[in-house]
């Protein structure tokens, strides 16, 4: 349904500086009806990828197709088949109501006048904004704006949806409602390309995902397969109540420790220790080398997608 083949995109820099390469030979193939996640750190090229597929940017090299149509030469046809929701506060007419925003979008997509009223009511209902339809958008919360973005992307009933960080900045309740909305879109047969920073969100929603860094794919599979593909067997977490500097070095020297990083909270410094699959190193070994420092909560867990993601990025960086 969506194909990117060796796509490169460079941006001209300010005078004297080297051009910025946002995408560097990105290749992806997304199936019809999938929810596909695009993960990566800031500047990895996620939004650039979405903007190329949404026909708002042209690739410098390579080709991108949606439903067999080239995003450069068949842009108008591609636009009829896709809906785009760039998250955030921008992109809406704040001084108008939600209904007026959708009415103008419907006219941009040439919806017949007789269908417009019903379709606007339908998409407002899908995103749960029916009661706020006639309120000015400037009075909306961030979550309501995100849902209005999605409603607008759905106005012409496209087959493909691009959602760029839809839950960014939302409170937990609004983020959960949004995830349920995305799952509902799959039931409606839509193909969804989703970019996100939230690993648990990608884990919960996506059929497959790609991790990209510096404009290239560094992992591409189902969330479970990505978790299994990295050399992380288990994760040990230990709260250190004293100075953690010596503890960090001591734990890093243990055999088969893939990585150690520190998460600070009010009460303690939590050491997050990733241990290679099949390793004999466990909590007993960790507590042994930490016998000189005061420790608090200690536990072992299975690696999450976030662990895999961090391991992938660390491997890429090294």
């Amino acid at each position: 349904m969506i194909e990117l083949s060796e796509v490169t995109r460079t941006f001209a820099a300010r005078r004297g500086a080297a051009p910025v390469r946002a995408l560097d030979g990105l290749t992806l193939d997304i199936e019809r009806g999938e929810i596909f996640g695009l993960l990566g750190p800031n500047g990895a090229g996620k939004t650039t990828t979405v903007r190329i597929l949404a026909t708002l940017l042209t690739p410098t090299e390579g080709t991108a197709r949606v439903d067999g149509l080239d995003v450069v030469t068949d842009a108008a046809d591609v636009r009829r088949r896709i809906g785009v929701a760039f998250g955030g506060e921008r992109g809406l007419y704040d001084r108008l109501s939600a209904r007026d925003n959708l009415r103008f979008a419907a006219q941009l997509y040439d919806l017949p006048r007789r269908e417009m009223k019903g379709r606007i009511a339908e998409v407002l209902d899908v995103v749960g904004l029916g009661a706020a339809a006639d309120q000015r958008v400037e009075a909306f919360s961030r979550g309501m704006k995100q849902r209005l973005h999605i409603a607008r992307a759905l106005i012409h009933d496209p087959d493909v949806l691009f959602l760029d960080e839809p839950s960014s900045g939302l409170d937990p309740v609004a983020a959960r409602a949004l995830r349920e909305l995305v799952l509902d879109l799959r039931l409606r047969g839509k193909t969804v390309l989703l970019t996100t920073h939230y690993m648990f969100e990608a884990d919960q929603l996506c059929d497959r995902l790609a991790v990209i860094a510096a404009g290239r794919v560094i992992a591409l599979d189902t969330p479970d397969a990505v978790k299994e593909s990295v050399r992380v067997g288990s994760v040990l977490e230990v709260d250190v109540l004293d100075d953690h500097t010596g503890a960090l070095e001591a734990v890093s020297d243990l055999p088969d420790v893939v990585s150690v990083h520190v998460e600070q909270n009010d009460a303690a410094n939590r050491l997050v220790i990733r241990v290679a699959a099949g390793s004999g190193t466990g909590l007993t070994d960790v507590l042994h080398v930490l016998s000189a420092v005061q420790t608090g909560t200690v536990f072992e867990r299975r690696p999450t997608l976030e662990d895999a993601y961090i391991a992938l990025l660390e491997a890429k960086a090294s």
Binding site: A54, T55, L56, A76, D77, R79, R80, V84, F86, G88, R90, G91, L92, Y93, D94, A105, L108, Y109, D110, R152
Partner: peptide, 13 residues
């Protein structure tokens, strides 16, 4: 400024 220029350019018309 409000990000709606992309809506106009990204529309099929």
């Amino acid at each position: 400024y409000s990000g709606t220029l992309e809506l106009l350019v990204g529309a099929p018309r």
